[in-house]
Design a binder for these strands. Structure first.
Lengths: 204, 204
DNA sequence: CGAATACTTGATCCGCATCAAGTGCCGTGG
DNA sequence: CCACGGCACTTGATGCGGATCAAGTATTCG
Protein backbone atom coordinates (compact mmCIF):
# COMPACT_ATOMS: atom_id res chain seq x y z
CA UNK A 1 0.00 0.00 0.00
CA UNK A 2 2.76 2.45 0.81
CA UNK A 3 5.15 2.79 -2.07
CA UNK A 4 8.74 3.07 -0.97
CA UNK A 5 11.10 5.70 -2.24
CA UNK A 6 14.01 4.23 -4.23
CA UNK A 7 16.97 2.96 -2.26
CA UNK A 8 19.56 5.66 -1.86
CA UNK A 9 17.21 8.53 -2.64
CA UNK A 10 16.51 9.43 0.96
CA UNK A 11 20.22 9.37 1.81
CA UNK A 12 20.93 11.62 -1.11
CA UNK A 13 18.19 14.04 -0.11
CA UNK A 14 19.65 14.24 3.37
CA UNK A 15 23.10 15.09 2.02
CA UNK A 16 21.58 18.19 0.47
CA UNK A 17 21.44 19.43 4.04
CA UNK A 18 18.65 21.86 3.39
CA UNK A 19 16.84 21.01 6.55
CA UNK A 20 14.07 23.16 7.98
CA UNK A 21 12.46 22.96 11.39
CA UNK A 22 8.88 23.95 11.99
CA UNK A 23 7.02 24.23 15.25
CA UNK A 24 3.52 22.91 15.82
CA UNK A 25 0.95 25.29 14.31
CA UNK A 26 3.47 26.77 11.87
CA UNK A 27 2.87 26.66 8.15
CA UNK A 28 5.43 25.06 5.84
CA UNK A 29 3.75 26.76 2.93
CA UNK A 30 0.52 28.57 2.34
CA UNK A 31 -2.14 28.30 -0.33
CA UNK A 32 -1.56 30.41 -3.45
CA UNK A 33 2.20 30.52 -3.02
CA UNK A 34 4.32 29.31 -5.93
CA UNK A 35 6.13 25.99 -5.39
CA UNK A 36 9.89 26.23 -5.77
CA UNK A 37 10.39 22.53 -5.20
CA UNK A 38 8.99 19.99 -2.80
CA UNK A 39 9.62 18.61 0.67
CA UNK A 40 10.67 15.37 2.24
CA UNK A 41 9.41 14.99 5.82
CA UNK A 42 12.08 13.59 8.09
CA UNK A 43 9.86 13.52 11.13
CA UNK A 44 6.72 15.22 12.36
CA UNK A 45 3.13 15.51 11.30
CA UNK A 46 1.56 17.80 8.73
CA UNK A 47 -2.01 18.46 7.64
CA UNK A 48 -2.95 19.84 4.25
CA UNK A 49 -5.64 22.44 4.87
CA UNK A 50 -7.94 23.91 2.27
CA UNK A 51 -9.54 27.22 3.22
CA UNK A 52 -13.03 27.73 1.81
CA UNK A 53 -14.26 31.18 0.87
CA UNK A 54 -16.72 31.17 3.74
CA UNK A 55 -13.95 30.68 6.26
CA UNK A 56 -14.28 26.97 6.86
CA UNK A 57 -11.14 24.88 6.77
CA UNK A 58 -11.00 21.35 5.39
CA UNK A 59 -8.32 18.75 5.75
CA UNK A 60 -7.41 17.22 2.41
CA UNK A 61 -4.54 14.89 3.34
CA UNK A 62 -2.09 14.19 6.13
CA UNK A 63 1.64 13.54 6.00
CA UNK A 64 4.15 12.13 8.43
CA UNK A 65 7.78 11.05 8.51
CA UNK A 66 9.28 9.52 5.34
CA UNK A 67 6.66 11.04 3.10
CA UNK A 68 6.86 13.68 0.41
CA UNK A 69 4.98 16.94 0.76
CA UNK A 70 4.08 19.63 -1.74
CA UNK A 71 4.97 17.48 -4.74
CA UNK A 72 1.47 17.57 -6.21
CA UNK A 73 1.42 21.32 -6.78
CA UNK A 74 5.03 21.24 -7.92
CA UNK A 75 4.42 18.51 -10.49
CA UNK A 76 1.15 20.05 -11.63
CA UNK A 77 2.99 23.34 -12.08
CA UNK A 78 0.27 25.10 -10.15
CA UNK A 79 0.19 27.38 -7.15
CA UNK A 80 -0.48 25.58 -3.86
CA UNK A 81 -4.20 24.96 -3.57
CA UNK A 82 -3.96 24.40 0.18
CA UNK A 83 -1.68 25.16 3.13
CA UNK A 84 0.67 22.77 4.89
CA UNK A 85 0.09 23.12 8.62
CA UNK A 86 2.29 21.40 11.18
CA UNK A 87 0.24 19.46 13.71
CA UNK A 88 3.45 18.51 15.52
CA UNK A 89 6.99 19.90 15.50
CA UNK A 90 8.25 18.89 12.10
CA UNK A 91 11.58 18.49 10.35
CA UNK A 92 11.75 18.61 6.56
CA UNK A 93 14.28 18.60 3.78
CA UNK A 94 13.63 20.90 0.89
CA UNK A 95 14.36 19.76 -2.67
CA UNK A 96 14.51 22.69 -5.04
CA UNK A 97 13.70 22.63 -8.73
CA UNK A 98 17.24 21.85 -9.78
CA UNK A 99 17.71 19.01 -7.34
CA UNK A 100 14.26 17.68 -8.18
CA UNK A 101 15.19 17.43 -11.84
CA UNK A 102 18.46 15.81 -10.95
CA UNK A 103 16.88 13.23 -8.65
CA UNK A 104 14.14 12.39 -11.12
CA UNK A 105 16.79 11.71 -13.76
CA UNK A 106 19.06 9.70 -11.51
CA UNK A 107 16.27 7.55 -10.05
CA UNK A 108 13.84 6.40 -12.73
CA UNK A 109 12.00 4.42 -10.05
CA UNK A 110 11.30 7.68 -8.28
CA UNK A 111 9.26 8.89 -11.21
CA UNK A 112 7.28 5.64 -11.38
CA UNK A 113 6.66 5.77 -7.67
CA UNK A 114 5.30 9.29 -8.00
CA UNK A 115 3.08 8.21 -10.88
CA UNK A 116 1.73 5.33 -8.88
CA UNK A 117 1.21 7.40 -5.76
CA UNK A 118 -0.58 10.21 -7.55
CA UNK A 119 -2.75 7.71 -9.40
CA UNK A 120 -3.67 6.06 -6.12
CA UNK A 121 -4.36 9.36 -4.38
CA UNK A 122 -6.60 10.43 -7.23
CA UNK A 123 -8.55 7.21 -6.93
CA UNK A 124 -8.89 7.63 -3.19
CA UNK A 125 -10.04 11.20 -3.57
CA UNK A 126 -12.66 10.31 -6.15
CA UNK A 127 -14.06 7.53 -4.03
CA UNK A 128 -14.00 9.76 -0.97
CA UNK A 129 -15.85 12.50 -2.80
CA UNK A 130 -18.62 10.27 -4.03
CA UNK A 131 -19.04 8.12 -0.96
CA UNK A 132 -19.05 11.02 1.43
CA UNK A 133 -21.72 12.74 -0.62
CA UNK A 134 -24.01 9.76 -0.16
CA UNK A 135 -23.37 8.69 3.38
CA UNK A 136 -24.93 10.08 6.50
CA UNK A 137 -22.74 11.99 8.86
CA UNK A 138 -22.52 9.14 11.35
CA UNK A 139 -20.99 6.87 8.72
CA UNK A 140 -18.61 9.53 7.49
CA UNK A 141 -17.53 10.35 11.02
CA UNK A 142 -17.08 6.70 11.98
CA UNK A 143 -14.99 5.99 8.91
CA UNK A 144 -13.00 9.15 9.50
CA UNK A 145 -12.10 8.49 13.10
CA UNK A 146 -10.97 4.99 12.20
CA UNK A 147 -8.79 6.45 9.46
CA UNK A 148 -7.44 9.33 11.51
CA UNK A 149 -6.68 7.26 14.59
CA UNK A 150 -4.95 4.62 12.53
CA UNK A 151 -2.93 7.14 10.59
CA UNK A 152 -1.68 8.92 13.70
CA UNK A 153 -2.84 7.24 16.92
CA UNK A 154 -0.72 9.38 19.25
CA UNK A 155 -2.24 12.62 18.06
CA UNK A 156 -5.04 14.16 20.10
CA UNK A 157 -7.64 14.66 17.41
CA UNK A 158 -10.20 17.31 18.30
CA UNK A 159 -13.89 17.31 17.35
CA UNK A 160 -13.19 20.25 15.12
CA UNK A 161 -10.46 18.43 13.24
CA UNK A 162 -12.62 15.37 12.75
CA UNK A 163 -15.33 17.65 11.41
CA UNK A 164 -12.86 19.32 9.08
CA UNK A 165 -11.95 15.96 7.64
CA UNK A 166 -15.45 14.60 7.11
CA UNK A 167 -17.29 17.69 5.94
CA UNK A 168 -19.24 18.31 9.11
CA UNK A 169 -19.28 20.58 12.18
CA UNK A 170 -17.93 20.20 15.72
CA UNK A 171 -21.39 20.24 17.25
CA UNK A 172 -22.56 17.44 15.03
CA UNK A 173 -19.42 15.40 15.66
CA UNK A 174 -20.00 15.67 19.40
CA UNK A 175 -23.50 14.31 18.99
CA UNK A 176 -22.32 11.55 16.71
CA UNK A 177 -19.54 10.57 19.11
CA UNK A 178 -21.93 10.32 22.02
CA UNK A 179 -24.20 8.16 19.89
CA UNK A 180 -21.29 5.93 18.87
CA UNK A 181 -20.36 5.66 22.53
CA UNK A 182 -23.91 4.68 23.49
CA UNK A 183 -23.67 1.98 20.84
CA UNK A 184 -20.52 0.76 22.52
CA UNK A 185 -18.27 1.27 19.50
CA UNK A 186 -16.06 3.92 21.10
CA UNK A 187 -15.30 5.28 24.54
CA UNK A 188 -14.68 8.90 25.49
CA UNK A 189 -12.43 9.69 28.44
CA UNK A 190 -12.11 13.38 28.97
CA UNK A 191 -11.31 14.70 25.55
CA UNK A 192 -9.73 11.42 24.52
CA UNK A 193 -11.43 9.02 22.14
CA UNK A 194 -10.93 5.26 22.28
CA UNK A 195 -11.96 3.01 19.44
CA UNK A 196 -13.52 -0.18 20.79
CA UNK A 197 -14.99 -1.78 17.70
CA UNK A 198 -13.38 -0.76 14.46
CA UNK A 199 -15.27 -3.23 12.30
CA UNK A 200 -18.62 -2.07 13.59
CA UNK A 201 -17.67 1.54 12.88
CA UNK A 202 -16.79 0.71 9.29
CA UNK A 203 -19.92 -1.40 8.85
CA UNK A 204 -22.31 1.42 9.75
CA UNK B 1 -4.18 23.73 -19.54
CA UNK B 2 -4.35 20.61 -21.68
CA UNK B 3 -1.03 18.85 -21.74
CA UNK B 4 -0.15 17.49 -25.12
CA UNK B 5 1.03 13.98 -25.74
CA UNK B 6 4.59 13.87 -27.09
CA UNK B 7 5.04 14.32 -30.82
CA UNK B 8 5.08 10.96 -32.54
CA UNK B 9 3.41 9.06 -29.73
CA UNK B 10 -0.08 9.18 -31.18
CA UNK B 11 1.17 8.05 -34.59
CA UNK B 12 2.98 5.18 -32.94
CA UNK B 13 -0.09 4.16 -30.97
CA UNK B 14 -2.12 4.12 -34.16
CA UNK B 15 0.35 1.82 -35.87
CA UNK B 16 -0.38 -0.75 -33.16
CA UNK B 17 -3.69 -1.15 -34.95
CA UNK B 18 -5.48 -2.46 -31.92
CA UNK B 19 -8.53 -0.41 -32.58
CA UNK B 20 -11.85 -1.09 -30.87
CA UNK B 21 -15.25 0.32 -31.69
CA UNK B 22 -17.90 0.85 -29.07
CA UNK B 23 -21.49 1.90 -29.51
CA UNK B 24 -23.21 4.50 -27.37
CA UNK B 25 -24.23 2.98 -24.02
CA UNK B 26 -21.60 0.23 -24.25
CA UNK B 27 -18.96 -0.13 -21.58
CA UNK B 28 -15.28 -0.06 -22.50
CA UNK B 29 -14.48 -1.51 -19.12
CA UNK B 30 -16.34 -2.09 -15.90
CA UNK B 31 -15.54 -1.36 -12.28
CA UNK B 32 -13.56 -4.09 -10.47
CA UNK B 33 -12.02 -5.49 -13.63
CA UNK B 34 -8.25 -5.72 -13.79
CA UNK B 35 -6.52 -3.26 -16.13
CA UNK B 36 -4.38 -4.94 -18.79
CA UNK B 37 -3.23 -1.62 -20.21
CA UNK B 38 -4.87 1.65 -21.06
CA UNK B 39 -6.75 3.32 -23.90
CA UNK B 40 -6.26 6.18 -26.27
CA UNK B 41 -9.53 7.65 -27.49
CA UNK B 42 -9.41 8.36 -31.22
CA UNK B 43 -12.88 9.83 -31.32
CA UNK B 44 -16.05 9.67 -29.29
CA UNK B 45 -17.17 10.52 -25.80
CA UNK B 46 -16.81 8.53 -22.60
CA UNK B 47 -18.02 9.05 -19.03
CA UNK B 48 -16.37 7.49 -16.03
CA UNK B 49 -19.18 6.24 -13.80
CA UNK B 50 -18.86 5.25 -10.17
CA UNK B 51 -21.64 3.02 -8.86
CA UNK B 52 -22.51 3.55 -5.20
CA UNK B 53 -23.68 0.70 -3.03
CA UNK B 54 -27.18 2.15 -2.86
CA UNK B 55 -27.50 2.05 -6.63
CA UNK B 56 -26.78 5.67 -7.42
CA UNK B 57 -24.34 6.40 -10.20
CA UNK B 58 -21.91 9.30 -10.15
CA UNK B 59 -19.86 10.76 -12.96
CA UNK B 60 -16.24 11.18 -11.95
CA UNK B 61 -14.65 12.40 -15.17
CA UNK B 62 -15.32 12.68 -18.90
CA UNK B 63 -13.09 11.87 -21.85
CA UNK B 64 -13.18 12.69 -25.53
CA UNK B 65 -11.00 12.37 -28.59
CA UNK B 66 -7.21 12.59 -28.16
CA UNK B 67 -7.36 11.74 -24.48
CA UNK B 68 -6.15 8.76 -22.52
CA UNK B 69 -8.57 6.56 -20.66
CA UNK B 70 -8.06 3.98 -17.93
CA UNK B 71 -4.50 5.04 -17.23
CA UNK B 72 -5.18 5.97 -13.61
CA UNK B 73 -6.12 2.46 -12.53
CA UNK B 74 -3.37 1.00 -14.67
CA UNK B 75 -0.68 3.21 -13.16
CA UNK B 76 -2.03 2.80 -9.64
CA UNK B 77 -1.93 -0.96 -10.19
CA UNK B 78 -5.48 -1.20 -8.87
CA UNK B 79 -8.68 -2.66 -10.19
CA UNK B 80 -10.92 -0.17 -11.98
CA UNK B 81 -12.82 1.81 -9.38
CA UNK B 82 -15.38 2.95 -11.92
CA UNK B 83 -16.81 1.99 -15.31
CA UNK B 84 -16.10 3.63 -18.65
CA UNK B 85 -19.42 4.22 -20.36
CA UNK B 86 -19.67 5.44 -23.95
CA UNK B 87 -21.96 8.44 -24.23
CA UNK B 88 -21.39 8.47 -28.00
CA UNK B 89 -20.09 5.91 -30.47
CA UNK B 90 -16.42 5.71 -29.60
CA UNK B 91 -13.23 4.54 -31.23
CA UNK B 92 -10.25 3.65 -29.07
CA UNK B 93 -6.77 2.19 -29.37
CA UNK B 94 -5.71 -0.20 -26.69
CA UNK B 95 -2.16 -0.10 -25.34
CA UNK B 96 -1.30 -3.28 -23.50
CA UNK B 97 1.16 -3.62 -20.65
CA UNK B 98 4.08 -4.41 -22.93
CA UNK B 99 3.47 -1.54 -25.29
CA UNK B 100 2.84 0.79 -22.36
CA UNK B 101 6.25 -0.02 -20.93
CA UNK B 102 7.83 0.42 -24.33
CA UNK B 103 6.18 3.77 -24.97
CA UNK B 104 7.01 5.10 -21.52
CA UNK B 105 10.66 4.26 -22.11
CA UNK B 106 10.82 5.65 -25.60
CA UNK B 107 9.04 8.91 -24.73
CA UNK B 108 10.31 10.35 -21.46
CA UNK B 109 8.02 13.34 -21.98
CA UNK B 110 5.09 10.96 -21.90
CA UNK B 111 5.88 10.08 -18.33
CA UNK B 112 6.19 13.72 -17.28
CA UNK B 113 2.95 14.53 -19.01
CA UNK B 114 1.22 11.75 -17.10
CA UNK B 115 2.72 13.01 -13.85
CA UNK B 116 1.53 16.52 -14.54
CA UNK B 117 -1.91 15.41 -15.62
CA UNK B 118 -2.46 13.18 -12.61
CA UNK B 119 -1.22 15.89 -10.27
CA UNK B 120 -3.63 18.35 -11.85
CA UNK B 121 -6.55 15.92 -11.73
CA UNK B 122 -5.87 15.24 -8.08
CA UNK B 123 -5.91 18.95 -7.35
CA UNK B 124 -9.16 19.41 -9.24
CA UNK B 125 -10.75 16.49 -7.45
CA UNK B 126 -9.76 17.79 -4.02
CA UNK B 127 -11.10 21.24 -4.74
CA UNK B 128 -14.26 19.76 -6.20
CA UNK B 129 -14.77 17.61 -3.15
CA UNK B 130 -14.43 20.43 -0.67
CA UNK B 131 -16.24 23.13 -2.60
CA UNK B 132 -19.16 20.92 -3.49
CA UNK B 133 -19.58 19.96 0.14
CA UNK B 134 -20.01 23.61 1.09
CA UNK B 135 -22.07 25.00 -1.73
CA UNK B 136 -25.79 24.87 -2.13
CA UNK B 137 -27.20 22.77 -4.89
CA UNK B 138 -27.98 25.76 -7.10
CA UNK B 139 -24.34 26.79 -7.13
CA UNK B 140 -23.14 23.25 -7.74
CA UNK B 141 -25.63 22.77 -10.55
CA UNK B 142 -24.82 26.11 -12.17
CA UNK B 143 -21.09 25.42 -12.09
CA UNK B 144 -21.67 21.92 -13.37
CA UNK B 145 -23.77 22.87 -16.37
CA UNK B 146 -21.21 25.47 -17.37
CA UNK B 147 -18.49 22.84 -17.14
CA UNK B 148 -20.43 20.09 -18.88
CA UNK B 149 -21.68 22.27 -21.72
CA UNK B 150 -18.21 23.67 -22.32
CA UNK B 151 -16.63 20.26 -22.26
CA UNK B 152 -19.04 18.75 -24.76
CA UNK B 153 -21.51 21.31 -26.11
CA UNK B 154 -23.03 19.03 -28.73
CA UNK B 155 -24.06 16.41 -26.21
CA UNK B 156 -27.63 16.41 -24.99
CA UNK B 157 -27.05 16.40 -21.24
CA UNK B 158 -30.01 15.09 -19.29
CA UNK B 159 -31.16 16.27 -15.85
CA UNK B 160 -30.15 12.90 -14.51
CA UNK B 161 -26.62 13.23 -15.83
CA UNK B 162 -26.25 16.72 -14.44
CA UNK B 163 -27.42 15.38 -11.08
CA UNK B 164 -24.95 12.53 -11.31
CA UNK B 165 -22.16 14.98 -11.80
CA UNK B 166 -23.05 17.39 -9.01
CA UNK B 167 -24.20 15.03 -6.27
CA UNK B 168 -27.89 15.77 -6.56
CA UNK B 169 -31.11 14.29 -7.96
CA UNK B 170 -33.04 14.78 -11.20
CA UNK B 171 -36.01 16.27 -9.40
CA UNK B 172 -33.89 18.88 -7.71
CA UNK B 173 -32.03 19.69 -10.91
CA UNK B 174 -35.33 20.35 -12.67
CA UNK B 175 -36.31 22.80 -9.96
CA UNK B 176 -32.93 24.47 -10.03
CA UNK B 177 -33.01 24.81 -13.82
CA UNK B 178 -36.42 26.41 -13.76
CA UNK B 179 -35.15 28.84 -11.13
CA UNK B 180 -32.05 29.62 -13.19
CA UNK B 181 -34.31 30.20 -16.17
CA UNK B 182 -36.52 32.57 -14.19
CA UNK B 183 -33.36 34.46 -13.29
CA UNK B 184 -32.60 34.74 -16.99
CA UNK B 185 -29.30 32.88 -16.82
CA UNK B 186 -30.36 29.95 -18.99
CA UNK B 187 -33.14 29.08 -21.39
CA UNK B 188 -34.85 25.72 -21.74
CA UNK B 189 -36.29 24.69 -25.10
CA UNK B 190 -37.84 21.28 -24.93
CA UNK B 191 -35.20 19.18 -23.25
CA UNK B 192 -32.44 21.42 -24.52
CA UNK B 193 -30.62 23.81 -22.24
CA UNK B 194 -29.10 27.08 -23.43
CA UNK B 195 -26.62 28.99 -21.34
CA UNK B 196 -27.32 32.71 -21.54
CA UNK B 197 -25.10 34.14 -18.83
CA UNK B 198 -22.13 32.00 -17.95
CA UNK B 199 -20.52 34.56 -15.64
CA UNK B 200 -23.66 34.97 -13.59
CA UNK B 201 -23.93 31.20 -13.22
CA UNK B 202 -20.38 30.98 -11.91
CA UNK B 203 -20.88 33.95 -9.60
CA UNK B 204 -23.81 32.39 -7.77
C1' DC C 1 -48.00 7.33 -34.27
C1' DG C 2 -47.12 5.02 -30.19
C1' DA C 3 -44.15 3.73 -26.47
C1' DA C 4 -40.59 4.69 -23.79
C1' DT C 5 -38.00 7.94 -21.77
C1' DA C 6 -37.36 12.39 -19.93
C1' DC C 7 -39.16 15.91 -17.58
C1' DT C 8 -42.37 18.60 -14.25
C1' DT C 9 -44.75 20.02 -10.02
C1' DG C 10 -46.36 20.04 -5.37
C1' DA C 11 -46.45 17.84 -0.77
C1' DT C 12 -43.94 15.89 2.81
C1' DC C 13 -40.24 14.84 5.79
C1' DC C 14 -35.81 14.36 7.82
C1' DG C 15 -30.88 15.15 8.62
C1' DC C 16 -27.96 18.18 10.13
C1' DA C 17 -26.31 22.98 10.32
C1' DT C 18 -26.86 26.74 13.22
C1' DC C 19 -27.49 29.16 17.45
C1' DA C 20 -27.33 29.82 22.32
C1' DA C 21 -26.08 28.91 26.77
C1' DG C 22 -24.00 26.42 29.18
C1' DT C 23 -20.04 22.76 31.57
C1' DG C 24 -15.70 20.54 31.89
C1' DC C 25 -10.85 19.79 30.98
C1' DC C 26 -6.16 21.05 31.05
C1' DG C 27 -1.99 23.46 30.66
C1' DT C 28 0.20 27.59 32.58
C1' DG C 29 1.95 30.65 35.86
C1' DG C 30 2.27 32.09 40.36
C1' DC D 1 0.61 22.27 43.69
C1' DC D 2 -3.31 24.72 43.14
C1' DA D 3 -5.97 28.34 40.95
C1' DC D 4 -7.39 30.37 36.96
C1' DG D 5 -8.31 31.39 32.23
C1' DG D 6 -9.18 29.77 27.89
C1' DC D 7 -10.25 26.45 24.88
C1' DA D 8 -12.71 22.29 23.91
C1' DC D 9 -16.59 20.13 24.55
C1' DT D 10 -21.78 19.44 25.49
C1' DT D 11 -26.79 19.79 25.04
C1' DG D 12 -31.21 21.23 23.52
C1' DA D 13 -34.06 24.15 20.50
C1' DT D 14 -34.89 25.72 15.96
C1' DG D 15 -35.02 26.10 11.02
C1' DC D 16 -34.17 25.07 6.36
C1' DG D 17 -32.32 22.84 2.20
C1' DG D 18 -33.03 19.37 -0.51
C1' DA D 19 -34.15 14.31 -0.87
C1' DT D 20 -38.00 11.55 -1.56
C1' DC D 21 -42.50 10.32 -3.15
C1' DA D 22 -46.39 10.49 -6.13
C1' DA D 23 -48.92 11.58 -9.95
C1' DG D 24 -48.87 13.59 -13.54
C1' DT D 25 -47.21 15.91 -18.70
C1' DA D 26 -44.10 16.52 -22.55
C1' DT D 27 -40.70 15.11 -25.87
C1' DT D 28 -38.28 12.32 -28.62
C1' DC D 29 -37.19 8.41 -31.18
C1' DG D 30 -37.97 4.27 -33.52
Amino acid sequence: MFNRLPKGLIEEIETLKIKHLFKKRQYIYKASEIPQGFYFIKKGFVGLVFACENGNDHFLRFFKGNQLLGHRSFLAEEIYHASALCLEDTEVFFIDKKNAGYLLKKYPDFSSMLLKNLAQELGKCEIHRVKFSEKEVIQRAAESIVYLFEFYPEYKWTRLEIAQYCESTPTTIVKVLSKLESMGYIKQMGHKILILNKDALLRL
